[in-house]
């Protein structure tokens, strides 16, 4: 990612995505999946590990962390780790092949889901029953499914914009 790409492509797209997230939440009154995380994954699939991309991922992490209570640094760190790990694993897997990329995205989604559960249970002090665990699982599956769909969509959009 160059500075020019950062300011002309990625920052505007991230702001539109943030607006979309707020709009979809308030319009449909249900959780639309983690659009910002999806944008982060779509971004790391297209760019290299350098200063503009690190700053952009930190910015996305900050936007993602706003929804939480004092977890902004954690999300910034997580997004940058995602960026670094993608660049690292690129040496061993050919992410140019669509199949590999799809599996990699699924892997990242699962890691993200585990992190979400970890945060949830670390804050939770209430005792849970079977019904609660079942609802948590359903919500988790929905979250990962919708987020994965957003990754597919945003990757298409970003790739198109990036190439033109």
């Amino acid at each position: 990612m160059t500075w020019k790409e950062l300011f002309l492509i990625f920052l505007p797209v991230s702001l539109i995505t943030f607006f979309l997230k707020a709009f979809v939440s308030s319009f449909f009154l249900f959780y639309p999946g983690d659009i910002l995380f999806a944008l982060a994954i779509a971004t790391i699939s297209l760019v290299n590990f350098n200063l503009p991309s690190i700053l952009f991922l930190m910015f996305l992490g900050l936007l993602r962390g706003i929804d939480t209570i004092r977890l902004e640094p954690l999300w910034m760190f997580f997004f940058v780790v995602c960026l670094y790990s993608w660049g690292y694993t690129k040496r061993f897997f050919s992410f140019r092949e669509t199949k590999n990329r799809l599996y990699a995205w699924l892997g990242y989604c699962l890691i993200y889901g585990v992190l979400q559960l970890f945060i949830y249970f670390s804050f939770l002090e209430s005792s849970l029953g079977f019904r609660d665990y079942f609802i948590i699982f359903i919500k988790w599956a929905w979250l990962l499914f919708t987020t994965y769909l957003w990754i597919l969509l945003l990757y298409k959009v970003l790739k198109h914009v990036f190439q033109t």
């Binding site: 707020a22 308030s26 009154l29 959780y31 929804d67 209570i69 979250l143």
Partner: peptide, 11 residues
């Protein structure tokens, strides 16, 4: 002004 509707929090 903003309801994130996060499934694991209520902010």
């Amino acid at each position: 002004i903003y309801k994130p509707l996060d499934p694991y929090s209520g902010v």
